[in-house]
Amino acid sequence: MYIIARNIFRFVVVILFQVLVMDNVMINGYMIPYIYILFILLMPFETPRWIQLLSGFALGLAMDLFTGTPGMHTAATVLAAFVRPYLLDLLASRDGYESETFPRIHYYGFLWFLKYTLLIVVIHHLALFYLEVFQLKLFFSTLLRVILSSILSTSTIVLSQYFVFRK
């Protein structure tokens, strides 16, 4: 029960932080930090997959409503929520993940968290930016935006782990 309340609280905080603070940060039009997928990253390991998918859907829908885009964030977050279990399997050490732990730096170290964040962020950004552009004419400039924004988002998310979401 406590964990559910915590995740709902995090959902609200992450969305508000994204639309009120992060959406105002833009560096020369190419680097946009999307940190709201932090919510997907931090969901507990044991969360049933259908709940992960529905949470991803709700997260994307909330972002779409705030930014006035139709379904683009939704498609990207659902994808991110879908691939998360596979990535977790891929990144698992030999012993797997212990119960009573969460996917955080605190439990699995900086390097693990960096890899985990980077993979999900890149998948999410690829989907989001290309859906937004929806044409191949701007293929390379979009790719540049994906790469630069992924770097910015990932570093912001990893840094936030030390300051805001410490435990």
């Binding site: 998918l53 859907f57 994307g60 683009m72 498609a75």
Partner: peptide, 9 residues
């Protein structure tokens, strides 16, 4: 869910 999202788009 993806079909819903793409319909929206």
């Amino acid at each position: 869910l993806e079909i819903i999202a793409f319909t929206l788009i």
